[in-house]
Write a protein that binds this DNA or RNA. Structure first.
Lengths: 219, 219
DNA sequence: ATGCTAAAGTTATAGCATCTAACAGTGGGA
DNA sequence: TCCCACTGTTAGATGCTATAACTTTAGCAT
């Protein structure tokens, strides 16, 4: 993934940073994003507190790297799910399930990138750029699908398409990619936040219905 | 709102608790839910640190009260928006805009109740109960609307309707209330998380389109 | 009015966190 | 071989939650 550096010093440095990220990820999985503690990580590594500040200037820097990493991984998941489905018609559902699967497998990580910003949030422009990768896949998917019934939103999007990053998707495809995203996030994030827990119904069924609606809405 | 207690001691106690909540709310508005600090609040009130532990056993207890309060206020907003619209057909859109308006006016507070759980989350059953109030209004709204085209999800919800708390809404109305909620939350929470900021389009237009879809989907 | 008692406030302290500063080894490369 | 940058250390400043022990205050019954 990361090109191994020439000098052994730099190589060792990257190994340490990777181990820190791994341990931080474990903390995220166990106690959420706010539970990340450089101090605790250092102790787990047999180091004493401030040692890690040689590798990360900030606690925030570590968090930012985790966010970027998670975004890349989610984008990768989405991309590969899309690539593995030959039928363009079935791609949205397949991709949707892939996103939900990834989110359910590591809820805190999903919330890390798409949930409430962490204490010292201040998202750097880098993460914004990475988030576009996911969107690009969505645009690809819906650009390959016939879309009908132009709407008010389509006209607006036609005039504001900078965010596609030069993608050639039609306004209708842009709209469908956007709403695909917001609706996916709606069900998934509420499920992750535990809002459905006491309610008794099966989130799977709700999710599948939502997927079906998204599909049929394309017409 | 709260019945003023008989004894002056209890009255003073409630005044202090209210002032703490107010200052905490300000902290939430400024730095998010994680920024709530009993210590800082105490200093702002001219008290010394541990004094507030006479009024709140925990930092979590304060957070829980803020959550309940926010939930009640959101429910109140939703309820009054619904009551002020005579045309049942227009109610969903009106209520949807009310929810978004409330969320945009105090983003951190919306995220406090529907976003990532705060550090020491552990939501008590009390909050679950309060959250049902919002859902009840949604059920009321869609129960008054004609709904067609039964779906797979409807059958499932017919068999799992405990969460309605005895509401007489039809399965189709239950479904529409649920998806109304998830879709609202999808657009709103992504907007609050700042995911749309760099993209250039107007979130208003996206939101209105989503509202229109929700409406037309009822058929 | 007086005095008891519970509530409200205080300081001191423990523990954990981030992060800076000053100092001590150690190993890579000229 | 030797230098110095890199890696690590301990000490400390600061801020947080939370508990413990002590003091003051104020309500209320007598």
């Amino acid at each position: 993934m990361t090109s191994s550096p020439a000098t052994p010093r730099a190589r060792y440095r990257e190994q340490v940073r990777a181990e820190v990220r791994t341990l931080a990820l474990r903390q995220v999985a166990e106690t959420g994003a706010a539970g990340i503690s450089l101090n605790a990580i250092a102790k787990q590594m047999g180091l004493s507190g401030p040692a890690l500040y040689r590798y990360f200037t900030n606690r925030d820097e570590l968090v930012t790297e985790l966010i970027s990493e998670a975004y890349r991984e989610l984008a990768e998941t989405v991309r590969s799910a899309a690539d593995n489905e030959d039928d363009p018609q079935r791609r949205p559902a397949v991709v949707g399930r892939a996103v939900r699967g990834w989110a359910l497998a590591q809820p805190h990580r999903y919330l890390l990138i798409l949930g409430t910003p962490v204490p010292g949030y201040e998202a750097p422009p880098e993460t914004v750029e990475v988030s576009r990768a996911v969107m690009t896949v969505f645009l690809d998917i819906f650009a390959a699908l016939p879309s009908a019934s132009p709407r008010e939103l389509d006209k607006h999007l036609a005039a504001h398409r900078v965010w596609t990053g030069g993608h050639e998707a039609s306004p209708a495809a842009m709209r469908r990619a956007l709403t695909f995203w917001t609706r996916l996030h709606g069900v998934i994030s509420l499920e992750l936040a535990g809002q459905f827990t006491g309610m008794g119904f099966d989130p799977d069924v709700l999710f599948e219905d939502e997927l079906a609606t998204i599909l049929s809405e394309g017409h």
